[in-house]
Structure formats: C-alpha cells, structure tokens
Simulated scan of single mutants.
Amino acid sequence: MTPASVSHAHPHAKAARPLSPARRHGARGIEAAAWRKAASPAPVRAGETGDICATVRCEPASGPAAHESATRCMHDHELHLIGAAPARLRIGSGGDEEVHSFAPGTVVLLGPRLPRSLAFEHRALPGSGSTDGLVLRFGDEPLKRGMALFPELADAGPLLARARLGVRFVGLEAGTIARLRRVEASSGLARFAEFAALLNELAQWRDYRVLSGVALAGEGLGEDARTLRMCKAIDHIRDNYAEDLSLADVGAIVGMRENAFSRSFRRTTGQTFTDFVIGLRVARACRLLATTRQHVSSICYEVGFNNVSNFNRHFRRIEGMTPGEFRARHPGTAG
C-alpha cells in the first residue's frame, strides 16, 4: 500500500501579546502560536493563600485538594503521576464520554478548560491509605506572561497546546519521573527550576498519545481547532502506520476535506502525508533489523510495505544504505 501524498496549511493564531520565540517552525510553531491565545486569568477567591499563589502547586493524588475548586482548575494545567494502583480518566459525558485506564507510573498532562465532567479516579491499594500518586498544578496565564519576558519558555508551547486534549506520555525514563518527584520535594526558586527542566524534557518527548477528540467539536476554538486536528491525525497515523492508510480517510477522521487536510498536514509536519508514513515505517524497520533476526522480506510486510523492492528503495533513500547493510552495522543486537 502506498498512501496518497499531502500538503498542508499552517494556521497562525493572533496572540494577545506578540511574541517571537527562537524556534518557530513545523508542528512546534503552529502549536506554540495556538497555545499563546489569550485566556482569562484564574480567579483568586478570598481566603486562598500560600501555595495557591505559586506558579507550581503540588498535591497528593488522594488528597481532597485534588478534586475541589473546579472553577480555579478550569485555568490550570494538571500533570498527574499515577501511583501504586491503576487510575481511570473520564472525559466528556453521555455518548461522547471517553474512558482511559492507566497503569501505575503513567504520567498524564491535562490542559485547562477540558470538559468539566472530567474526573480522575486514583484508587488506593487494598489496606493502603495512599496511592503514592502526585498532581502538579500550574496556571495557564502565568506561563503566558512569562513567555513575554523569557522567550525560551515558548519551547513548551507545543506541549501545552496538545494538553488541551489530554496527553499520555509513553515510556518516560526514570530520570524524568525522579525530576517530577524533586519538584514536589523542593520549593521557591528551586521548585521552579526543577519544573522548567521537567517541562523541557516533556516537551521533547516524542512518544505520546493524545487522549480526547471532544474538544475538536467545540465552538470558538478557531486556529486551535486546526492545530488539535493535526495532533489527532498524527497520533492516528503513529498507531496505524502499518495499515492501509489514505489521505482522505485520515482527513475524514479529523473532520477535514482531503485538500485542506493535505495542506495543513504539510505545514504542520514539514512533510507530505506519504513521506511521513514512509518515515515511520522505515524507522520501525530499523528497530526490527537491529533487534531481531527476522528476514528482510518479513520486516517489509510487517511495517506496511506491499513489496520488497519498494521497501528497499525507500529504505535506501532515507537511511543511505540497504536493509542488509544496516543490519550488518548493528552486529550483536539481535536476540
């Protein structure tokens, strides 16, 4: 199967405060522009003091604060570390409700203004009073204001734009989890420094899944809606790259006509639809060649190519060598 090729249009969101981050191209640029749209600052009610005023607030997942003050949380990002027991996330309601289950140790980022029927249910282990889970809350508006002073913060823009649909990180390294714990254990400037480093690591982590399509149907999202559609399309391709994908079918999944989706996809990724799919297939083939003894023809069909000559041609174009030569350069890794 050879997917149809695509181009795509890059949406430019009108920011409330013009910013100029150093790196603004491809998916990073479009998502950063969408995320910087103005939002109303979170209200601070009488009696809210202390950690509420901090940029980053830490709570145990089982604590009462993790479920209260829905009004304030409408303006917060939430970074959840699932503790010793599994957890479930509900987004939407009725026929549109989506339910996700997460294993212990999973990290999930939820953006502000997700549907407020959302509930995170951390379940403690039998006989235990705690889940050992953790929630980091950080305001949307303070980071936007910070980007006006520190353009480096714009590197987190694409991550925070994706968070509007919820993001599950796949295979995070132990060092990143440890840093999340250090944010909890520190305070003041030390906490913010650890938090900034954590945001940087999460923003660069490429293996993630967008959780919800609910916000795509929302009204008034403007350029954000197009950005989020591209996130959803890319996730679908990543999950199904070995299948018989077509430009029209993926466009339909995110509610876009073929030509418009083609333009948007190319602007977002810097690649045609065809090249993006082929790149994923070749990357998977490289992993199989380096870590297994599967025959080249078997790998060819497993990753989605329909004949060996086509596979060899694209592999050589991208990697600069044949699959056999690639395997020869990775001796001793196959089991």
Rank of each mutant, 00 (worst) to 15 (best):
L134D: 00
F138Q: 07
F138C: 15
E141K: 09
E141H: 05
E141G: 05
G146P: 12
E152R: 12
D155H: 05
G157V: 01
L159Y: 02
A161D: 11
R164A: 13
G166N: 02
R168A: 09
F169T: 04
V170W: 07
V170Y: 10
L172P: 06
G175S: 15
A178T: 05
A178D: 14
R179V: 01
L180I: 02
L180R: 00
R181H: 11
R182C: 13
R191S: 12
R191Y: 15
F192S: 03
A193G: 08
A193D: 09
E194M: 11
L198G: 02
L199R: 01
L199M: 14
L202I: 15
L202P: 03
A203D: 00
Q204E: 10
R206Q: 15
R209L: 13
V210N: 09
L211K: 02
S212D: 09
S212V: 09
G220W: 14
A225C: 13
R226P: 02
R226L: 15
R229K: 13
M230G: 13
C231I: 05
K232N: 05
I234D: 01
I234H: 03
R238C: 13
D239T: 15
Y241G: 14
Y241I: 06
E243M: 04
L245C: 06
L245V: 11
S246R: 12
A252F: 02
I253S: 09
I253F: 07
M256G: 01
R257P: 04
A260Y: 01
S262N: 03
S262V: 03
